[in-house]
Design a protein around this nucleic acid. Sequence first.
DNA 1: TTATGATGTGAATATGGATTCACATAGAGG
DNA 2: CCTCTATGTGAATCCATATTCACATCATAA
Lengths: 198, 198
Amino acid sequence: MTQKMNTEARREQIAGAALKLLAERGSEGFNIADLAESVGLVPSAIYRHFEGREDVLDAALDVFRDRVYGLVEAARNETQDPLQALELLLTRHARLIESGGAVPHIMASMSAPEGHAARRAKTERIFAGYVARVEELVRDGQESGQVRSDINAATVAVLFAGMIQPAALLRHAEGERFDITAHVARVWELFRRAVARD
Amino acid sequence: MTQKMNTEARREQIAGAALKLLAERGSEGFNIADLAESVGLVPSAIYRHFEGREDVLDAALDVFRDRVYGLVEAARNETQDPLQALELLLTRHARLIESGGAVPHIMASMSAPEGHAARRAKTERIFAGYVARVEELVRDGQESGQVRSDINAATVAVLFAGMIQPAALLRHAEGERFDITAHVARVWELFRRAVARD
DNA sequence: TTATGATGTGAATATGGATTCACATAGAGG
DNA sequence: CCTCTATGTGAATCCATATTCACATCATAA
């Protein structure tokens, strides 16, 4: 028998594994059997720690949120320079995606079916929260004079998110062939030119 | 009984309806019963015109591809000015999204499960084809001297796609509250500054 | 007008996964 | 060392959908 664990540790382990599967296959391809196998358990064991499938997905989204928001926090703490923080953030995203992290198909959960409105709402909140955090960074940049003040911070934040999403998609589609690090470096230059005060 | 139609017309009708549902709910929430109802048929009738669910999704993706590529063609034909064509294209995307068109969650099909590799591959091809077309427009712009020639056309094309995806997501999430037209107008200015030769 | 095939219908049937349940056992606390 | 409860297991069961099938009916063309 697989070694027993207390439910708190197990929950975290399962949620993490679920996020990984979710990132690989999207919520459509996500199923309890594979999840259980990926943590060395039998399907029914999952129910010792979660109410059911939706509960697992909910927990996975929590992990996702913490990880992504954590990325923003880390970038913020690493430098006082807001523009540099954004660049750092972008790079970290690239690294996370490269390591099969997540991000792309998670957001696809936003298109969750009617019945799973809660999941959808949660994903939307996470995305909105992310954009809001980036927006704040942009505002800081405007106050520090590095970012043009004649542009809308929210718009910039959405554009920033737009640098990540398609890259993640391409990475998922083309795999190794797509050099996300190089792409991100190039697209950053474009972004900088768009938003930096000359 | 619902009026009979010859299979060609019916197929088109069904594929169009399927695309609509897909855009609203994603492939996870897509089911034959709702599809049938949306065209005033009974579920089993769908099988008179399609092999099965995957076949329907395949046809819906065809409609999507034609529509999106058509947008690019239309923008191209409307003006000789490549940069203006891109702006037109962006605006048209916004309008398509606004009218509940599609785009966002379709691309989420890229995360189709293992078993549906064909669907996934097809979606990837469509996305790649879209980016390639935009890239060509960017190249034209570089040749005409409107777009900086020291930047990578492919990178610009991906960034362009990145202006649309998150906007579509937000539109889906926030609905009317998100003024996609206004957003697109603002983000276009950013994009222009990033890529236009001064 | 009528014969015929194509299209539509409703009632099965099939299937893949989630969920439940009765039973087994590890492992923490006394 | 013993007990008792939380955790793990395998075998059902349930359920939502896809899919099939026998039958009905419309559309068309001879």
